[in-house]
Write a protein that binds this DNA or RNA. Structure first.
Lengths: 137, 137
DNA sequence: TCATTCTGTAATTCTGTTTATTACAGTACA
DNA sequence: TGTACTGTAATAAACAGAATTACAGAATGA
């Protein structure tokens, strides 16, 4: 994960989990995270495409969880924001004339996949409810 | 890991593991990775500070492994290049007036630490020798 | 001894990515 | 019908990573 999107999405979802059934505006969420509301709306758009939140447009609109927090694994959030590889974003173009350069990306990919498996098994074990229950008022 | 440093360092060390006892120049290594030699020297400098490689200055100089590849765990390399947190680089400053904003960094840190533990247990199991033995000539 | 070939580093520039900002159409409510 | 939202595109600003330039210092060997 090469970006700050995971913590942002988790922050958004935690706010929603702790405000069950309430429509939160992007402005309000942005105020808690301290980032720009447009970025919040972009993240919410992504979470919505992944079936984690639902939104209502217009006055008094906003977004809320699309299903109970106990039905959302942290691995679901990871998958929703995940795009590049975990370790280093293999944007490298090693020299194919070198035997190491030619083969390293394959072996790196295998390694990353194995590591990501271990990570996902961890994230599978925790739900959004577990995470948000840690917060005190 | 937010950067491409892990693959670069692993590439460097793989080249050395496959050229045991030979002093490799930064120019030569840079040619295989296809990056700038100065960046290679920077990474080597870091690996040297972590006791993984040793260098010789001057004409016919270069760098080589400081110990057998079988004594270098991939977790050693991870620690050597590691600086920021694994997931997202908590450069975030959430709103302390919000109960979620106030507490989220603590809970994120705990989560990251747990995940990183799982990752390290994986990387602990593989040595540089294991990794470089996968390469064909 | 001295030219050569390396490393070690600092400083600067270049480039790509991320984030903020601006703008505005569309939707729902009251 | 005005207000308060979302959704989204386009642009600008900020930042980080990498390349490049520059040069001092070290080892070699002719």
């Amino acid at each position: 994960m090469n970006n700050a999107r995971f913590p942002i999405s988790l922050h958004i979802l935690t706010l929603m989990a702790r405000n069950k059934g309430v429509l939160l505006s992007s402005e309000h969420i942005a105020g808690s995270i301290n980032i720009n509301p447009v970025l919040v709306r972009k993240e919410i758009s992504n979470l919505r495409n992944n079936g984690l939140v639902e939104s209502k447009e217009g006055k008094n609109g906003g977004s809320t969880l699309a299903k109970p927090a106990s039905d959302i694994q942290l691995s679901d959030i990871y998958h929703a924001v995940q795009q590049a590889s975990l370790l280093g974003n293999s944007r490298n173009h090693p020299n194919p004339a070198c035997s190491v350069g030619r083969q390293i990306n394959v072996h790196l990919d295998n390694l990353y996949q194995e590591i990501e498996g271990a990570l996902l098994r961890k994230l599978d074990k925790m739900t959004l409810e577990d995470f948000s229950a840690q917060f005190e008022d």
